[in-house]
Design a protein around this nucleic acid. Structure first.
Length: 152
DNA sequence: GCCAACGTTGGC
DNA sequence: GCCAACGTTGGC
């Protein structure tokens, strides 16, 4: 059982969108970063929990929790020229990009903002609060998870 | 294999 | 909208 944090722009796909999906479940597609890919492909397991983080918006921060309900499998959008995630260099016999399915669990009563997260020394090791880090998916330790949940 | 140029992320 | 930081690309 692992913990994660996954970023998404709320204007594109926010936690409300996830909540409104059939079965409140959605493939987390479009990730085109190798580090993030590796985590989804090799480490994420069914039953893992992840924070939903809203990025590139007025108040960036953690807005809720979701569950990984399907472990890594090839991202179909890489083979679909109709999508903006199409990758002509990816070979179907050896897919370059992977994703997981996530399911809505809960929306926090308030957004735990990036500003607030940065104030706590308990969280200073999180890539999220480190200057210049742009990873869209990152691991969260059990200690960090419990601490953040306690902030709500 | 180096590294400059370019594109993207994402906070502010 | 700006721009710093970073990842990727491609020429050599």
């Amino acid at each position: 059982m692992n913990y994660w944090l996954m970023k998404s722009e709320p204007d594109v796909f926010g936690i409300e969108h996830l909540q409104q999906r059939p079965n409140q479940t959605e493939p987390w597609d479009g990730v085109r970063n190798y580090q993030a890919r590796n985590m989804m492909r090799d480490q994420m397991q069914e039953g893992d929990l992840a924070f939903f983080y809203h990025s590139n918006c007025k108040v960036p921060g953690i807005v809720g929790v979701m569950e990984i309900v399907r472990a890594g499998y090839p991202d179909p959008t890489q083979f679909d020229p109709e999508t903006k995630y199409y990758d002509p260099k990816s070979n179907p016999d050896k897919p370059r990009w992977y994703l997981v399915d996530v399911k809505f669990k809960q929306t926090f009563k308030r957004t735990i903002s990036l500003t607030e997260l940065k104030e706590h020394p308990e969280l200073e090791d999180m890539p999220l609060v480190r200057k210049g880090n742009r990873l869209s998916i990152m691991p969260v330790t059990a200690e960090q998870w419990a601490f953040i949940v306690g902030l709500e």
